[in-house]
Design a binder for these strands. Structure first.
Lengths: 193, 193
DNA sequence: TTTTGTACTTAACCTAGGTTAAGAAAGCAT
DNA sequence: ATGCTTTCTTAACCTAGGTTAAGTACAAAA
């Protein structure tokens, strides 16, 4: 599994033995689109690394409205962080949007690796730092930008996702209804002409 | 500085020598309310731990509107994570809201400590994990809850802050204007009677 | 080929929250 | 006490985005 190793070695370098030890703790799974890997109420046991395909994490509030927390495509990690670290029942769905090959790292194996290969604890520290910064920026964007500006940023940040996923998912990610998203999109088109 | 050590030992235990090494890397500062510790465009050099007092981090968008990213009172860490890890100019102000005693840990010292005392890298990994979970929850709340529900959660989560800071700051944190916040507050009062 | 379901669009109408403006209250310094 | 500044309130009016509902366009089953 070269992709996951490569992505780690962008931040820390591993010896061949360390790579082997690491690889021995991983599990590979193939999943079809629409598969639900995790549902609210369940305890998240894995960090998922995406070799190919697209996943999303989202929740559903009382009104049956979905809200997307994260998309993950090739080279990204996804999971229910809250449930994973607390080992309590989570609030998120994790769903496969496009047929995917995933690398699974169980909570226990991850903890073991932290002590067996401290460089991996560093890697995950850095990974989570970057994720925190991204979430902080998205939070501030939601507080200060209009829907159109958020959409604009989304297009620039995830240009490849636009083709791959239904636009209602993007609407949900930027925090508007599919109807408003559609209205907004046609307004943008008109203004460009 | 017992508070910062205590807060670390809730997650990892340190030997007396490690505590001493750690303490030797810290700097203590007193600051009056209204002091600006960091402004947009500057590069953040420190993680700030709050011994006493209250701080906030916030940004200002084009329209001269402030948005609060975080409050920090006794026992909390604050900083501009984006600028700190990238060592690029940041977007945040960090301001003292109530006279404060702070413990400063410089970026270089923090990196040194990670290798000198790997347990500290673990501590900060856990700290950041928790921060990430909190930001994820706040993000989802902003997508799915009304202003009143967000205010409700804020009151429950930070009951002590209500007395300490001007309510316009709380309005800014939950993402509404001070005027609307005031209207909402009086509506809530009426409904309780 | 028809059916069925899901995604997308459009339009009329609605509301949570924003804007503007003016006054009241409360700190804080002189 | 007296002004000066900042915070808070209220009210009239406004708008971004939500809701409801109906219709269109596909794609997957059957």
């Amino acid at each position: 599994m070269p992709l996951i190793i490569d992505s780690i070695e962008k931040h820390v370098s591993l010896t061949p033995e360390e790579k082997e030890l690491f690889a021995s703790k991983l599990e590979i799974q193939q999943h079809k689109a629409k598969t639900i890997l995790l549902s609210p109420g369940e305890i998240c046991q894995y960090s998922y690394f995406v070799n190919s395909g697209v996943l999303r994490s989202f929740n559903i509030n009382d009104n049956i409205v979905e809200h997307v927390l994260q998309f993950a495509c090739k080279g990204w990690w996804i999971g229910d962080m809250y449930s994973l670290i607390s080992q309590k029942p989570g609030n998120l769905f994790i769903e496969v949007l496009e047929d995917a090959e995933l690398v699974l790292l169980s909570k226990e194996n991850q903890e073991q690796l932290y002590t067996e290969i401290p460089k991996l604890e560093r890697f995950f520290r850095i990974l989570i730092e970057n994720s925190l910064v991204a979430h902080q920026e998205r939070l501030m964007d939601n507080l200060s930008l209009s829907a159109e500006e958020r959409f604009d940023k989304f297009c620039k940040r995830y240009p490849d996702l636009m083709q791959k996923i239904p636009q209602k998912q993007i609407a949900s990610y930027i925090g508007v209804t599919p109807e408003f998203f559609s209205k907004m999109k046609s307004r943008i088109l008109k203004n460009k002409i």
